[in-house]
Design a protein around this nucleic acid. Structure first.
Lengths: 190, 190
DNA sequence: TACATATTGTACCTATCGGTACAATATGTC
DNA sequence: GACATATTGTACCGATAGGTACAATATGTA
């Protein structure tokens, strides 16, 4: 019998960091090897599909994380206000307050989007949808909820761009806090 | 005497398109050659610094274009409201209503940011600054003007991410229109 | 211990990368 | 036409890309 420990998943955080830092094209196998501490033998043992499978595994991992930690809690929040606040808190933490970039956002802008189109699309669609659900539950109309959700998800991605462009992590926090306040004030019974 | 016609600048639109589509790393010299119709001889004649100089030329060109067509008109707008409206119109046009990506935003997220840090940083700083100027001239307080400007520039970048992620150009227009309305309504004497 | 399977390092493959050298040619100016 | 300069295509360079082959080794089970 083979070992039951899947070492494969242990490599994913390091892989994520490499792709985040260098993009899909820029993440060479030597960089990947250095970051993970794994040689080609191991890498192609865990990911027979090569670089593409590695990136896909990272995207799946991110998707799952956001589903569990952001989208689902948002949809199920007992109290909409608290749910929204929690979303901003968790997201700020995930992105290291703007020091970390959104890999899926970066992929969306690069030509890697075509390669991973489904993942990239679903990620944002799910986010907008989950946020809209909680807004509706707070009494907001369907159209307004979708609009607000779209705006918020967009501005979070934009804040990451700006923070990284200016090399000013504080910008991310500022924008996030303003959006949180704005969104809470837009609630019907806020 | 040499020719006075600078063919160099004629190559810039095609170069911009290649970098926009494939990123800095992904834009290989063969892709660049195909897109511009120029061989290596010509490319290295016009851009002795190679790929890096090509990308820098593109960034400079974009910087200059936005300065002339967006930032300066914004600062000098006779009527703040009209100036803001014009900004949204020109920006929507520039980004082909969301079908085109912001090269500087894409560079900001990739590791090409480090290479072109100054350009990337100045572009967004200038944009935020120019917008803040017109908001102040409309009677808005300094802090509020900066905050609003930062939010708007961020949301535009985010809208590009979302539009491209969802492969839904319409999303860009929706977000832009909402932001325009929101910003105009935030004006003191709006 | 014996065996099957998983894991790993190393050597190697072809293709392409960014870039250089340079001769051939075009484009002026006088 | 003569001459200087600009422009271009082609051949070539070493380095590295992603990927494969496979023998050596570790690991787990019976």
């Amino acid at each position: 019998m083979p070992r039951t420990i899947g070492e494969r998943k242990d490599a994913i955080p390091a892989l994520a960091e490499v792709f985040r830092t260098h993009g899909f094209e820029g993440a060479s196998l030597s960089l990947i090897g250095a970051a993970t501490g794994l040689g080609k033998g191991s890498l192609y043992n865990f990911f027979p599909g090569g670089k593409e499978e590695m990136a896909q595994a990272v995207l799946d991992h991110i998707d799952a994380w956001f589903r569990d930690e952001v989208f689902t809690p948002l949809r199920r929040a007992a109290e909409p206000q608290a749910g929204i606040r929690e979303m901003f808190r968790v997201v700020d933490q995930y992105f290291h307050s703007g020091r970390r970039v959104c890999l899926i956002g970066a992929f969306a802008l690069a030509d890697s989007r075509d390669r991973f189109a489904a993942c990239v699309k679903d990620y944002f669609a799910e986010w907008v949808d989950a946020l809209a659900v909680v807004l509706r539950r707070a009494g907001m109309g369907a159209a307004e909820a979708r609009a607000q959700s779209e705006d918020v998800v967009a501005v979070i991605q934009g804040a990451l761009v700006l923070a990284r462009a200016a090399n000013d992590e504080a910008a991310f926090g500022r924008i996030m806090r303003r959006q949180e306040r704005r969104l809470l004030q837009a609630l019907p019974r806020g």
